[in-house]
């Protein structure tokens, strides 16, 4: 939404991220998708050359694209592919923990609101 606001006011934007379906749905002008776990959109931790390459690729996209474009980056996660299944996995081992976490989340949210800690 922020990208759309800037783009409408003459600032070219590009997103670098790892959540393809979310960005695709929102409708942004340019997106470099790194297909790795959420948390390190620019590349593996401490892989400076890789992170720099992501930024350079995104800038190139801004320079070259002539219409809304999604570019799939070449990064591959070094730790294997299990993260794709494991992230936000729900099964019998964590169902009760999640239910309790939800209760705590709502309680904490209410507490913050009651304390006036809400914009």
């Amino acid at each position: 939404m922020t990208a759309r606001e800037l783009e409408s006011h003459g600032i070219a934007t590009v997103i670098i991220g790892s959540g393809l379906d979310i960005v695709e749905k929102c409708g942004v002008p340019r997106y470099l998708h790194n297909d790795i776990p959420l948390g390190n959109p620019l590349g593996h931790p401490y892989a400076a050359a890789e992170q720099r390459a992501s930024v350079a690729s995104a800038l190139q996209l801004v320079e070259q694209a002539t219409a809304p474009t999604i570019r799939f980056g070449e990064l591959k996660w070094r730790g294997g592919e299990a993260w794709r299944v494991n992230y936000m996995k729900i099964d019998e081992t964590n169902r009760e923990t999640l239910r309790l976490a939800g209760i705590e989340n709502r309680r904490s949210r209410l507490e913050q609101i009651e304390k006036g800690e809400k914009r």
Partner: peptide, 13 residues
């Protein structure tokens, strides 16, 4: 949504 798609390395997954 109307996008153009490009790939630098291919999407295996």
């Amino acid at each position: 949504m109307q996008y153009e798609y490009e790939t630098e390395g291919g999407l295996e997954n």
